[in-house]
Lab assay of single mutants.
Amino acid sequence: MTFKLIINGKTLKGETTTEAVDAATAEKVFKQYFNDNGIDGEWTYDDATKTFTITE
């Protein structure tokens, strides 16, 4: 399955996707992406659209 990440950061904005077997696996991938890029904020997940959103 394809999961999308929408980034609404102070310095970084955009979208990316990842292929994962489930939302929990995608969450781990995206959290690592947050850490690697110094993004910290509030994030949500919409199961209907398989979209994670992080807002700094």
Rank of each mutant, 00 (worst) to 15 (best):
M1F: 14
N35R: 13
E27L: 15
F52R: 00
N37R: 13
D22Y: 02
T51S: 04
Q32W: 05
K31C: 05
T53L: 05
D22I: 02
K50M: 11
T11C: 15
T44E: 09
F30H: 00
L12K: 05
T2D: 04
V29N: 07
A48Q: 11
I7F: 14
G14V: 15
D22P: 01
T16P: 02
E19L: 14
G14A: 14
E42T: 12
Y33Q: 07
Y45L: 01
L5S: 01
I39F: 14
G9E: 02
T44A: 13
T2W: 09
F3P: 00
E27S: 05
Q32I: 08
K10E: 10
N37E: 14
T11G: 08
D47A: 13
Y33E: 05
T16E: 07
G41Y: 14
F3C: 02
G14K: 15
E15V: 05
A23Q: 09
I39T: 06
M1V: 12
K10F: 14
K4N: 04
Y45W: 02
T25K: 04
F3V: 02
D47E: 10
T17L: 07
E19S: 10
K50F: 10
T11K: 08
T55K: 05
A48W: 08
N8L: 13
T18E: 04
T18L: 12
M1Q: 13
I6L: 05
I6V: 11
A24H: 10
N8I: 14
K28Q: 12
E15K: 05
T51C: 03
M1K: 12
T18F: 14
F30R: 00
A23G: 03
T25Y: 06
E15M: 04
T53D: 01
G14N: 09
I54F: 15
N35C: 09
A26I: 03
I7V: 07
V29H: 11
G38T: 10
E56N: 04
D22W: 02
D40W: 14
N8H: 10
Y33K: 07
T44Q: 10
E56S: 05
D22S: 04
F52G: 00
D22Q: 01
A26K: 01
D40T: 14
T44N: 07
G41Q: 05
T17A: 08
T11E: 11
N8K: 13
F3K: 00
T2A: 04
A24D: 09
I39R: 04
D40A: 12
T18P: 01
G9Y: 15
T11N: 14
F52Q: 00
F34Y: 14
A23E: 06
G41R: 04
A24K: 11
E56P: 07
G14W: 15
T11Q: 09
T55I: 06
N37P: 06
N35L: 15
E42I: 13
T44P: 01
K50I: 03
E19I: 14
D36Q: 11
I6K: 05
N37Y: 15
F30E: 00
Q32Y: 06
K31M: 11
D36C: 07
A26M: 02
K31N: 03
A20Q: 07
T53Y: 08
I39P: 05
I54Q: 02
F34I: 15
T49R: 05
A20D: 02
K10N: 13
I54W: 15
K4P: 01
D40Y: 13
T18I: 14
V29K: 10
V21R: 13
A48C: 06
I7K: 01
T17Q: 10
F52A: 00
I39G: 05
V21I: 12
D22C: 03
K50V: 02
G38C: 11
E27I: 11
A24R: 09
D36M: 08
A24I: 09
D46P: 00
A23L: 06
E42N: 07
Y33C: 09
G38M: 10
K28S: 09
Q32C: 06
D47N: 08
K10M: 13
Y45D: 00
E27T: 04
T18D: 01
D47P: 12
K50Q: 09
V21A: 12
T49K: 05
V29L: 10
T49M: 06
T53I: 07
G14R: 11
K31G: 02
K13L: 10
A48G: 07
T11Y: 15
T49Q: 05
G9S: 12
D46C: 06
K31T: 05
T55W: 12
E42R: 08
A24S: 09
F34C: 15
K31H: 06
T44I: 08
T49W: 03
W43V: 08
F52W: 06
T51R: 01
T2S: 08
Y45I: 00
V29M: 08
Y45F: 05
E42P: 06
T53A: 04
T11D: 12
L5T: 02
T18H: 05
T18C: 10
I39Y: 09
N8R: 12
W43F: 11
